[in-house]
Amino acid sequence: MTDTTVPAKTPVITIILAVSLALALVGAGLLAFAWRNNTSTIDALRDDVTTLNASLTAAENENTELRSQLSDLEDLYPPRHFASREALLAWLAVAVPGLPEGNSLQRHLDLQELALAQGYIWSIWVDVSQPDITYVGSHVVAGDTVYLVDTTNGAILALHTSPYFIE
Rank of each mutant, 00 (worst) to 15 (best):
S20Y: 14
L92G: 04
F33V: 06
T4M: 08
I133A: 07
S40R: 15
T152S: 10
V141Q: 01
I42R: 15
L52T: 12
Y77I: 02
L148D: 13
A44F: 03
R85S: 12
A34H: 11
W125A: 07
R107N: 03
P79V: 04
L31C: 07
D75S: 05
P100S: 02
E74P: 05
I13Q: 02
L114T: 10
S71W: 15
V128K: 11
L76A: 13
L148W: 14
L159Y: 00
W35C: 06
S129K: 08
S20Q: 14
T2M: 06
N103D: 11
D132G: 04
D3P: 09
L109P: 09
T151Y: 02
S40D: 07
A24T: 13
A32P: 06
V26Y: 00
A83S: 09
L157E: 07
G27V: 08
E113I: 13
D150L: 10
G29W: 07
V146P: 01
T57A: 12
I166K: 09
A54L: 04
S84F: 00
L114Q: 09
T41R: 15
R67G: 03
T50H: 07
I121T: 05
L159I: 03
L45F: 07
N53P: 03
D48N: 05
A22F: 08
T5Y: 11
H160I: 13
L111I: 00
T134M: 05
